[in-house]
Design a protein around this nucleic acid. Structure first.
Lengths: 233, 233
DNA sequence: GCTGCATGACTACCATACAAGTTTGCTGTT
DNA sequence: AACAGCAAACTTGTATGGTAGTCATGCAGC
């Protein structure tokens, strides 16, 4: 029985479908590195832990595997996947390309009401800049979604859910080192460019901001090499 | 028993894991509209059809649902999802943003060997331009992947698999109307811009090319309204 | 003829059992 | 002590049965 699984379980509501609850619970625990990369998860152990049968666990595992969060090895076990640096960089490339275009479009079609919403979010971000990283991450997420919606690309944003999961694992590892005040300042610059309807500036500020995220990755990879897939030299 | 399921089944190899085979087979049949949108698929019927038990069917359904290809309605049945025009447009936006950036990077780092590979693909495309749409689609796919690999973004390309599935359903519907010679010409212009290391032109030609795909969608949506999710008026 | 209720058929979801492959532990031999 | 072989335990994948919810049909009452 894997030790990290002995933590008190999140309650599973048996009156609702079980497998989606298991998926959400396990996904969140993996993203937060509570279930560390490399951890072995067996269907039997997880089913015992959550007091359910193997079948819904298996279904949750299939989804987790599709999301790139676990590796299912037939006859051997399932393992929390290690973070693939190449995938993180690829996800970053995709995200930057898409959000840069979103920022351009947003600069072209933003309204005053939308700007007011963005400003309100910035105020909340500044309130968090004293070190409340979890709250900041939620506001950051809402901030980027707002811009996508302004650009009419809420659905496109949803397409990026899959890659966002990969990046969130890194974000949670680096959260304690977030330079919150710098990030808030960068968000402010993006909003200012959108306010000025300057598509070029909006794109450039967004790219600059998203590249900032890459800065902390080498440090955390060096601190926790076991969390990452070994790079071929 | 749904009528379209009576078509002779693709062979399932029982010495290998069954559910991945079912997933691939059903996914392909949905993408090709052989299983039309709205078609009801029950676990029991599909299991009988492919001479397997319900469990691997269920597992394939879970994956198909994650891929947006079927809607699972508890107690009611599972249905091939209708094509969501908003999702297609969103997928197109994301794809364009990413491939535009890929084209820029490719123009910056292409080598002569890479260009020779692209030229060879173009020759094959011209051979297909007389109307062999399926062969053209495969070459088109390889063409775009090549550019992504040139740009060092093969992994980023893989991230787009999910949205590519949605778009492929439309592509298969419109394949007979592909203006193949125009598409080959656009591909040629992209390669020429990359050859000239002109990142701006490469980006612009790529965007122009990818927007071309949108042109045929209204026609096919009008011809087969049942295939699409009804738009709110 | 229409409405409401009961019943039966069907569905996905979950529980349990079986099968095939892998790993671990124990025993015997050198 | 080290190695090889075998049996048991473990794993995921599949098969089958039970459960709760949904829908369609038939019947009775108005």
């Amino acid at each position: 029985m894997n030790q990290s699984l002995t933590t008190k379980p999140t309650a599973i509501d048996p009156t609702r479908a079980v497998s989606p609850q298991l998926f959400t619970c396990l996904r969140d625990r993996i993203v937060r590195s509570e279930l560390e990369p490399g951890t072995r998860l067996s269907e039997v152990d997880v089913a015992t832990f959550y007091n359910t049968s193997r079948q819904p666990v298996r279904e949750a595992f299939i989804k987790l595997s599709e999301a790139g969060l676990i590796d299912i090895r037939p006859q051997r076990g399932s393992f929390v996947s290690r973070i693939d640096m190449d995938s993180v960089l690829a996800a970053q490339f995709v995200r930057e390309a898409v959000e840069a275009d979103i920022a351009r479009v947003a600069a072209d079609c933003v309204t005053d009401d939308m700007l007011a919403d963005l400003d309100a979010n910035l105020i909340l971000q500044r309130d968090c800049a004293d070190g409340d990283a979890p709250a900041f991450m939620a506001l950051d997420e809402a901030f980027h979604l707002m811009i996508a919606v302004i650009a009419g690309q809420g659905a496109g944003w949803a397409f990026l859910d899959g890659l966002r999961t990969q990046m969130d694992r890194v974000r949670h590892l680096t959260a304690s080192q977030f330079p919150l005040e710098i990030l808030v300042e960068q968000h402010t610059q993006i909003v200012d460019a959108i306010r000025a309807r300057d598509a070029d500036a909006a794109e450039q500020k967004m790219r600059q901001h998203l590249r900032r995220v890459l800065n902390d990755i080498p440090t955390v990879a060096a601190a926790k090499p076991d969390f990452f897939i070994a790079k071929d030299t």
